[in-house]
Amino acid sequence: MFIDLLIMLVMAYGFGFLYYGLYRNISARVHGRFGPSLAQSFYDSIKLFTKDTSTDFGWMFFAGPIIMASGAILTVLFIPYFNHGERLVGLSPYGNLIVVLYFMVLGPLGNALGVGSHGNPFGAMGITRGLTRLLGLEMPFYIAVVGLMIANESADIGTIMANQAETYNIIAHPLLFIAAFISFLGFLGKSPFDVVGAPQEVYSGPAVEFGGKFLALALSQSAIFSFAKLLLMVDLFLGGADSLWDLILKTFVLFVASVFVGNVYGRFTTAQSVDFLLKVPTVIAIVGLLFV
């Protein structure tokens, strides 16, 4: 059990950074440059963990990133990796999809407390943008997930995966998938929904005062979290994974798709992104929900 959890965590960490490196590489190629090495994000993380000093604004600031990381790790542990339900299911028997959806906001909220406590207005602005954007992101995603839960008569991720043995949900409920995918892009924090940490406007936003180990933890959790989201999408719409290769393939495909979208579009403002998310994908999701 604990070994399983450890493996899940390490896999999430490794794949998260790998995919992040990949993302940077692909973006670089799109821009017409070589880009850093695949392991660059990993190097960054190690370096940040081993910095000599980091500014600490008090215990709440200290706890903020830890809560955020705990939230991300918790999310990963509650999402089963494979659809055969034997290994690497983590804690998913003790939770369900709704719990996971809420874990996904637990970390950010804990982080928000930490960020708020250092008194830098840019941090609070970033958090506000993030929470505002969350409004838009969650609407289509939740509708899609609700549609799946109603269609499967269950809120259990394992059951939803098992029910896709014949047809994947991406084919059975394409509209729901489109809606969920659009907000998934936003959840990954890539363009065009990357207004939260816009360095030019709000000076890195939430991460404005994070240096050294705090930034390291923030980066690591974001890698883990990205993988968790990929995993969730795979579990919900692509029938989960049978084997390790299946897992890598499916997450990779999904990831690459999101990277290309992210590289093509510019950045929406907060209002624009919420407006867009509340109009296009939400309407798609509602139509999809009516078909369920």
Partner: peptide
């Protein structure tokens, strides 16, 4: 009740914002 649930979720997600405003406005920040 899918649509109803979606609406509840929407409201519930928006609630984070005022929750944060409450705690930020009083305790956090400068």
């Amino acid at each position: 009740k899918g649509l109803l649930l979606a609406a509840v979720l929407f409201s519930s997600a928006s609630a984070f914002l005022y929750c944060y405003k409450l705690v930020y406005g009083i305790y956090l920040g400068q």
